[in-house]
């Protein structure tokens, strides 16, 4: 197995730790909940946008054809992974602490 894969996994984990740290910070300093909610909303919007795009591409919609965004490309998967890790890290920490 290439060291590169493990390295990537380490970088994605950092997103998870960031989500977790943000939730923990919010427990100590409640004002941070605003940031948690805001980032959570952005993450939801991201997934909603992604789903709409994938649907449009699969249906062959005209508007999807003009998207300069390869939803099934490596970059899209990587960014999705980062958002996912961030959300999972935060949610898992919430469940553990609260």
């Amino acid at each position: 197995m290439s060291h590169r894969i493990v390295s990537k996994f380490g970088y994605y984990s950092l997103a998870g730790f960031a989500g977790s740290a943000l939730v923990q910070l919010a427990v100590i300093w409640p004002q941070t909940w605003i940031a948690v909610v805001a980032l959570g909303a952005i993450a939801l919007l991201y997934f909603a946008f992604l789903l709409i795009c994938i649907k449009g591409v699969l249906k062959g919609a005209r508007w999807a054809g003009v998207l300069n965004f390869n939803v099934l490309g490596v970059d899209a998967i990587e960014s999705t992974g980062i958002v996912l890790f961030f959300v999972v890290g935060g949610v898992w920490t919430c469940l553990q602490i609260l």
Binding site: H3, G10, L14, F17, A21, Q24, I28, I97
Partner: peptide
């Protein structure tokens, strides 16, 4: 306690960052 967990999370994240970067360099 949350203060402890936050500290260790940040330290752990730092270690993971360094190690991941080093692995990348190694490759």
């Amino acid at each position: 306690p949350v203060k402890w967990t936050l500290t260790t999370t940040l330290i752990g994240a730092g270690l993971v960052a360094v190690s991941a970067h080093e692995l990348d360099e190694l490759q």
